[in-house]
Amino acid sequence: MFASCADPSSLEGLNWLLCYLTTGKHLLFYSSFLVVLLLMAITAPVALAFGFGGALAARAGFWPLRMLGKGYTAMVRGVPDIVFFLFVPVAMDQGLEWMRHKVKCPDWDAPIRQGNDFLVCEAAKLPLSSSPQIWHEVYGFALAVLAFSIVFGAFAANVLYGAMQAVPRAQLETAAAYGMTQRQVNRRILIPQMWTYALPGLSNLWMILIKATPLLFLLGVEDIVYWARELGATKSAIYDYPHPDWRVWYFLVLLAFYLGMTRISEIVLGRLTARLARGQATMAGEAMRKAGA
């Protein structure tokens, strides 16, 4: 990156370290932190939307819809989520390719599952084998986001369902007595009120989401764990910057990163909890009202 780094073998001490930490691969390592943050930024709202849908479905009056919602929330209970992280991307990938296969190659008569192989026609491959490398990476990342969203959506559905049940019934009945329809009650009373009840559960989920991000590595995305292993491994003299096994230092950096994320989240969520408790018929809200008066 710097002109002075042109000849690594002549460098000493701090200069060596500075040049070492700004090699192309290290810049990729730093950008992989952004990949992790991006994953969290996309997954959180998508999972919240999934959870919202699931919770509303589980409350629905229509029986099949209710069963669908309850089934979705029950799905992740009792099974380690890593099973879903390994299962969902492969299943989605095969499902999409199968559908495209049916549409694009209707005259293909060989079976798709030949023994231990999964074969679809060239045109149905996702992404197409001719498309550039970046699309392969984007597709892999998208599948990972989907797997995270489905699993965390189920957990969010659980939390939101509980929060909806916790909104005082009398308030919903009062709204109905004022002549509001079910939909109006949901939109004007239930949903604005439930957040204060949902927040402890949702902040817990956010903490878990932060701590689940290293699993991206298992899905084949080049994330921070991948780069930490790659860069930290012993580099022999044929490399520009030879060094012994430094993986333990790289993982210490990751540990510090995660501890920092957790600490910041704790502070932000604590403030948000205080903000949402304002004017609520809960102990925290009551304490705030008394302090103000």
Binding site: K211, R229, L252, L254, Y258
Partner: peptide, 9 residues
């Protein structure tokens, strides 16, 4: 911190 990172470390 994630258990995964703890294992690696």
């Amino acid at each position: 911190s994630p258990l995964f990172i703890q294992f690696f470390l």
